[in-house]
Amino acid sequence: MSWLTAEEALQALKTKPQTLYANVSRGRIRAKPDPTDPRRSLYQATDVQRLAERHAGRRKTETVAAEAIRWGDPVLSSAISTIIGGRLFYRGKDAAGFAEVATLEQTATLFWNGAEPLSSSSGTGHASPSLQAAFLALAGRVTSDLPSLGRSQAALRREASGVLYTVADALAPGPSDRPLHLRLAASWQRPDAADCLRRALVLLADHELNASTFAARVTASAGAALSATVLSGLATLTGPLHGAAWQGVGALIETASTLGAEQAIRRTLAQGNRLSAFGHPLYPDGDVRALALLSHFSLPPQFAEVREVGEEMVGEKVNVDFALAAMAAAFDLPREAPIIIFSLARSVGWLAHAMEQIDSGELIRPRARYTGPAPETDNRT
């Protein structure tokens, strides 16, 4: 990620300092403290360039649309969550503060307009958390659940509870009368991890219009069943650039255990590989979810070394993918624990977005900019 000084940003924008600061406060330009001089700020180059081109009138409509789906301007309206000034908010509430006291069930109530998720299952499920079981259970529901189109929000909220606990029975098997973080801790036989699991589930419940949430909303916009929207989100979450980024963190830690943190990071960067553990485009000052989670357990030594060395070398703070992998190591959770936690948490957000999209009554159907061979001409006379 490239950053500009204030002078460089002002030169590119051809504007006054007050306008630059106003664009930062409105979230149009991301900024972070200059590591060499905390009194100064650096400004995200892509944001500055986008605004400069807009002011110059050079951006076509198709360019604006193309940029919007790559960390660009908002493309959908949502009242569920947002990121402003480096902070994550759930329906206006600071998510980090909310995670201090809330459970995932209470987060669902907040997201679902006051509807409390109620389990109608026995809560038995599988003996241990299983992502495969979640896929199979959701796929089984998709073939029998009613389409969402034409149904009331009250009916959809009732069904959302059933879908959530279908996922929960696969990912956090246990008695249905226990909070999900306690079920998850018990299924892994790690009662000491329960509070950190609770925090992680809340912090990961939603994150604006990320890739998996967009997939869920597209599915919902077609009128598909709520179970289908969660299945779409879950499939997307498994990608290495999204919920499976923890695997890249694990690979870095493994290499660091052999070569040392500095050499491991140098090798990764030299090979042109992405460092999954550091940085997030929406958090120039550091991923608030990671900071909120890392303050509640002791980092294993190898993770602590990678964090210290990496933040200095890369110039970015560790992110929530690092925090999840570190938490799994700190509490000796199973290797796949990060994706299990992520999937269970984000199911609450996917369902909220699905219901919001259904309520809008709009089909998400963007156009493609054709770049193939020129269409054949009709030579008939």
Score class of each variant (00 low, 15 high):
Arg39Pro: 00
Thr107Asn: 08
Thr371Pro: 00
Phe278Asn: 04
Glu262Gln: 13
Met355Gly: 06
Gly174Lys: 04
Ala45Gln: 14
Leu131Ser: 08
Phe331Glu: 09
Gly125Val: 12
Leu118Met: 11
Leu42Val: 02
Pro301His: 03
Leu104Glu: 07
Pro175Val: 10
Ser257Tyr: 00
Gly315Ser: 05
Gly125Met: 06
Ser119Phe: 03
Ala211Phe: 10
Asp192Asn: 11
Leu231Met: 15
Leu269Gln: 14
Asn23Cys: 04
Ala102His: 11
Val75Asn: 01
Asn23Pro: 00
Asp195Thr: 13
Ala134Ser: 13
Leu164Thr: 03
Leu197Lys: 09
Ser295Leu: 04
Ala194Thr: 12
Pro301Leu: 06
Ser78His: 07
Leu299His: 02
Ala185Gly: 03
Leu110Ser: 03
Gly174Ala: 12
Phe342Ser: 12
Lys32Arg: 15
Ala222Gln: 13
Asp287Val: 13
Ala96Val: 15
Pro300Ala: 14
His280Arg: 12
Ala277Leu: 05
Arg30Asn: 11
Ala368Lys: 12
Thr61Asp: 13
Gln132Pro: 00
Gly97Val: 10
Thr236Val: 15
Val218Gly: 01
Ile69Tyr: 13
Ala325Ser: 15
Ala168Ile: 08
Glu159Gly: 02
Thr109Tyr: 00
Leu138Tyr: 02
Leu146Tyr: 03
Asp285Gly: 05
Gly286Phe: 02
Thr15Glu: 11
Tyr90Met: 05
His207Asp: 12
Val348Glu: 10
Ala224Lys: 02
Asp73Trp: 05
Gly361Thr: 02
Thr236Cys: 14
Asp47His: 11
Pro129Trp: 08
Tyr90Gln: 04
Met313Trp: 01
Arg367Asp: 07
Thr5Met: 10
Leu252Val: 08
Asn113Val: 01
Leu118Phe: 07
Ala137Ile: 11
Pro281Ile: 10
Arg266Leu: 11
Asp94Arg: 06
Arg190Gln: 14
Ser130His: 04
Leu118Pro: 00
Ala337Leu: 07
His181Asp: 07
Ala256Arg: 09
Leu4Pro: 04
His242Ile: 08
Gly223Thr: 08
Ala170Asn: 02
Leu299Met: 08
Ala45His: 09
Thr107Asp: 06
Thr229Gly: 08
Gly123Pro: 02
Gln271Leu: 15
Leu13Val: 13
Ser298Asn: 09
Ile265Ala: 07
Pro284Thr: 07
Ala228His: 06
Ala345Tyr: 05
Arg346Tyr: 06
Ala216Thr: 13
Leu182Arg: 14
Pro35Lys: 12
Thr5Asn: 04
Ala220Asn: 03
Lys317Trp: 02
Asn273Ile: 03
Pro173Gly: 08
Ala251Gly: 01
Ser130Val: 09
Asp47Gln: 04
Arg346Ile: 08
Arg365Leu: 14
Gly272Ala: 10
Leu203His: 05
Ser343Asp: 05
Thr61Met: 11
Ala330Pro: 10
Ala155Gly: 09
Ser78Ile: 04
Ala290Asn: 08
Arg157Ser: 12
Leu291Cys: 01
Trp71Thr: 13
Glu208Gln: 12
Ala66Asp: 04
Gly239Ala: 15
Ser25Lys: 14
Gln247Trp: 01
Asp145Lys: 01
Gly286Pro: 06
Lys93Met: 14
Gly286Trp: 02
Ala368Asn: 07
Leu259Cys: 06
Leu149Gly: 02
Arg157Gly: 01
Asp192Trp: 01
Thr143Met: 08
Asp94Lys: 02
Gly361Trp: 05
Pro35Gln: 10
Glu159Ala: 03
Leu131Cys: 08
Ala211Val: 13
Val318Gly: 03
Asn210Lys: 05
Gly372Leu: 07
Glu356Phe: 10
Val249Ala: 05
